[in-house]
Amino acid sequence: MYERALTELASKILGEVEGIIGYAPGSLPFHMRPFLCQREEDIACLSFNHFARPNLARYLLTLEMRKKRVAIVVKGCDARTVIVLLKEGQVKRENLYLIGAPCHGMVSVSKLEERFGVLSPPDFVWEADTFTWRGERFAIRDFLEDSCERCAYPNPPWYDALLGEELPKPPVLPGGRDYLGRIKALPLEKRWEFFAQEMEKCIRCYACRNSCPLCYCTECFVDQTRPSWLSQAATRNENLFFHLGRSLHMAGRCTECGACERACPLGIPIGLLPLYVEELIREHFAFEAGMNLDTPAPLLTYRENDPNEFIR
């Protein structure tokens, strides 16, 4: 997808930028990987498809990249993340060139496996919003990653160049697939039971944290020793404390890209917590993170005339 537009654009801007952070085919089928294109001969490797899952904004924060002017390929959610990073002063606008990729959503390998068993790449022919498997046609929407199922922003809100045409807003999905809604509908004890069970599985590998471009603290609170906030033992309560802590720290910042959830090697639906927090932020502040550069972030803005007393 977008290969031609990508190569043309890359040849044009490479030189003007020191590198292009994009996707290249991975070592396994149905995998794309982050790729740093720095030379002419790298350009051919750049590509994009339904498996370009990682949120590349994370790579803007490496020491090496911070010093350079770089271009970055962004989906809707990734672009929103870049905007949050810009707002928080982590990256400089003059150092960035955003290559927007209108996104039909990322396809979940486990959902494909569930339907088709052991996957063989030649069985599949991919198109923008459909694919065929052994000649039979399926809708991409039925195999999306959870985070993409709930996505309302297929187009980057801000970009320097766009690969292809902007896509229409995806339709609201039927209630049955709204998994946050499903959890919220449960009685309190059942909800607790659900989280307790999920938290029990966590091994604190921090794949969620490290995959998240907005988790950029030089020293994460879990690693602090003075004081030490939580035990090294990955028990249910300590794990919950970590995930709650992380979610609260993300409040009003999370762009719901789902990187944390997809990174989890144990399949814990860890995105639920920040997702719920963002829902509250929407409700109370009518705010969504990373939609533009101007609206102040509600929880990062101090005002003397704030209507709430506790903040004054």
């Binding site: 990987r33 740093l36 994370r58 590998c205 921090y206 794949a207 490290n210 995959s211 990174a263």
Partner: peptide, 13 residues
């Protein structure tokens, strides 16, 4: 090493 995010998933599993 460039694209590794330095999480512990691979080592823990």
């Amino acid at each position: 090493a460039w694209h590794c995010v330095n999480c512990g998933a691979c080592t823990y599993l």
